[in-house]
Amino acid sequence: MRIIFMGTPDFSVPVLQALVDAGHDVVASYSQPPRRAGRGKALTPSPVQARAEALGIAVRTPVTFRDAEAQAEFAGFGADVAVVAAYGLILPRAVLDAPARGCLNVHASLLPRWRGAAPIQRAILAGDAATGVCIMQMEAGLDTGPVLLRDTTPVDAKTAGVLTDELSAMGARLMVEVLGDLDAFAPVAQPGDGVTYAAKIDKAEARLDFTQSAAAVERQVRGFNPVPGAFFEFQGERIKVLAAQIRHPGEGGDLHEDSESEQPDGPGLRRGDGGVVLDDLLTIACGDGAIRPTLLQRAGRGVMTAGELLRGFAIPAGTQL
């Protein structure tokens, strides 16, 4: 098929590559404009732009599709279909209707759950047991279009980075399957019940909230790995937590359900102790239970274990984080 591809981040790249590998004619690739990045703040093309250029595909990076000139150029490619995967710009009706078979979206959730910008992170943060990918016919509403094909995967203990890679590969496979015989996939309207919205991640959300349950804090750690990176602050320094274990009362002898109990190797866990360091292993009390960070990173340093961190950067028991 004659295809326009539209995507921006790393998630989108395997989808573009799969279309090319399947023998489709990708006549143009749209991506958000280059952004300044790195210490030198040089303009850096998006992952999709870089891959498209390496594949010899024409690249367009409009700031908006509101003007008639951008819309006309898009229509001028004469595409059978546009494939959209985490593009990041709103497509007006003129763009949605330009390809002969419309626009198909690779959406990383089980619609209608988690419509919107950050479905992978929101699924982890909410404690969803499963997520997946939907191939959706795009319409004017936010991820409201009918679904042609879907697949699921358990969330388990995956980080956002691991889950993103898995769903990207799944989306590439499903899109190639749909485009192999588009007429064989009847669009199914999304149900009206179960709609949730995946708001864009605010960096402030990555600050670990130790007043929550240990399970919720551990989900923060996974949901914000690799970006923006869950963190706590100590002595004015921001320390990222890349992995953590949930600790329960009576586990390893360092947590207690009884608020009056004491122990030889650290303070007992009491209600309201969220954020208190309980021992010399960096076990941290939460609103319910505790967590023990296992992989951390100080600003400008490499990733290290809790033991490696504590050997040169003491965070003593009793510290309130």
Rank of each mutant, 00 (worst) to 15 (best):
I3Q: 03
I4C: 12
M6T: 03
L16F: 09
Q17T: 14
L19S: 03
L19A: 04
S31I: 12
P33F: 10
R36K: 12
G40L: 13
A42R: 15
L43H: 10
Q49K: 15
A54N: 04
P62H: 05
R66G: 07
R66A: 07
E69W: 06
A75G: 06
G76D: 08
G78I: 14
V81G: 03
V84C: 14
R93W: 05
R93T: 08
V95C: 07
A98E: 04
P99L: 10
G102H: 11
G102Q: 09
G116K: 08
A117Q: 14
A123H: 00
G127T: 09
G127Y: 10
G127N: 11
D128N: 13
A129D: 13
A130R: 15
T131L: 09
E139R: 14
G141E: 14
G145I: 01
G145Q: 00
V147W: 00
T152M: 13
T153H: 11
V155I: 15
T159D: 06
T159I: 08
V162F: 04
D165G: 15
L167M: 13
G171D: 03
R173D: 12
M175W: 02
G180V: 02
A184D: 15
P187N: 05
G194W: 05
K203I: 13
S213G: 07
V217Q: 03
E218K: 09
G229D: 05
F231A: 12
F234A: 09
K240W: 02
K240Y: 05
K240I: 02
A244M: 10
I246H: 11
R247C: 06
H248F: 11
P249K: 05
G250L: 06
D254L: 12
E257W: 10
E257S: 12
E257L: 10
D258S: 10
G266D: 01
P267T: 03
G275T: 00
D280L: 07
T283K: 07
A285H: 00
A285E: 02
G289L: 03
P293Q: 07
P293G: 08
T294E: 05
Q297W: 00
R298T: 01
A299M: 02
R301M: 08
R301Y: 05
V303N: 04
F313W: 15
A314C: 08
A317L: 12
T319K: 01
Q320K: 14
